[in-house]
Amino acid sequence: MKSKHFLKGLIHGIPIFLGYLSVSFGFGIMAVRSGLSAFEAVGMSLFNLTSAGQAAGVGIIAAGGSITEMILAQLTINIRYSLMSLSLSRKLDKSFTTPHRLAAAYGMTDEIFALASGQPGTVTPWYMYGMILISTIGWCLGTFLGAAAGSILPAEVSDALGIVLYGMFIAIVIPPSKKERGILAAVLIAAAMSTAIYFLLPFISGGFSVMICGVSVAAVCALLFPRSESTDGEDGGAA
């Protein structure tokens, strides 16, 4: 059972691996340009596993910012993970004991959360570990490649790879949007709100904007599109 779930997680993680490889490649280039060594850049990727947080972190280190500033920036940008953790904790299998939760919490990224919450039924620890392992390898490998050899890819290719993760997000939200009006509403309102914040309130950081949109839009949709009892609970997610 364990190895079957682990393998399934590894396979499901392949798009994340590819997406991370390209995104972290850019991060590696950026980190070295900001004065970090390749070793430090890979270390940051391994211990943080978060794109926006790391980009901000490198900026703060390069600018000689304080530890307090670092803490506040990470809190603001990454607080969305607490929402995802809370949401996904409802979908965990009974075999998810506290040690497993402590371990798997390390890998709560936007993409891993998206894939895991799109699974029918519950998710097991070994499924999560498979997905987290392959994703982390992609994230660290890409960081290393970017840091060590920033010019191995032509600019046109690395530019085009910048869209991979977003393509994956789109592939996750569209199919269930066709089936449920509530999800369609959540997707459309969140997109509109996020765009409005981006252009009208540019001082709100990307991570914070995602949090505001996520909570408020989900609350609105929960009010407007309550789900019937029969579909409530374990099924959560329809991707």
Binding site: R80, F169, G237
Partner: peptide, 13 residues
């Protein structure tokens, strides 16, 4: 219900 809709709203945003 809110937790159910959060992933879609977050991903879209």
């Amino acid at each position: 219900d809110m937790l159910y809709y959060i992933p879609y709203a977050v991903l879209s945003a």
